[in-house]
């Protein structure tokens, strides 16, 4: 497992992992559990009719450490952002920041897909 100390440290904490009982405003999912890699991005908007910023962003994931830490870092960065940020994740930048092995880029792309779907879910909910 060619992970840096930083990745190992983040993996040991995963501060942005969702709790099983969490019910978000919107949820986006990518990957397949049957293939051993799936991730969900869960988002809550600030209550009280504010500017709609993401008050809380969490993840659920089944997969390798690269997937878990990429999701954790993405959630950390998304908190406090406008919802459009969910569609603006830069997977190459995440991959580089975490100094993940090159073969793990696909896992970071899953995080990007899940975040985009989360935004779609959020907008669909608001359109209803």
């Amino acid at each position: 497992m060619g992970y840096t100390d930083g990745v190992r440290e983040r993996f040991s904490r995963l501060t942005h992992a969702a709790q099983p009982e969490d019910v978000p405003d919107a949820l986006g999912e990518a990957g397949e559990r049957a293939h051993g890699a799936c991730v969900q991005i869960l988002a809550w908007q600030a209550p009280g009719g504010g500017d709609g910023r993401l008050a809380r962003v969490r993840f659920r994931a089944l997969g390798c450490p690269a997937l878990l830490v990429a999701a954790d870092l993405a959630c950390e960065r998304l908190e406090g952002c406008a919802p459009a940020a969910l569609a603006a994740i830069e997977p190459l930048a995440l991959h580089a920041e975490l100094r993940l092995p090159v073969e793990k880029l696909g896992r970071v792309l899953l995080v990007e897909d899940a975040a985009r779907r989360c935004l779609e879910a959020l907008r669909a909910q608001q359109g209803n």
């Binding site: 497992m1 992970y3 190992r8 993996f11 051993g36 890699a37 089944l62 997969g63 390798c64 450490p65 997937l67 878990l68």
Partner: peptide
């Protein structure tokens, strides 16, 4: 669980 994560 994924084996790699479990081992880490």
């Amino acid at each position: 669980v994924a084996g790699e994560s479990l081992r880490l």
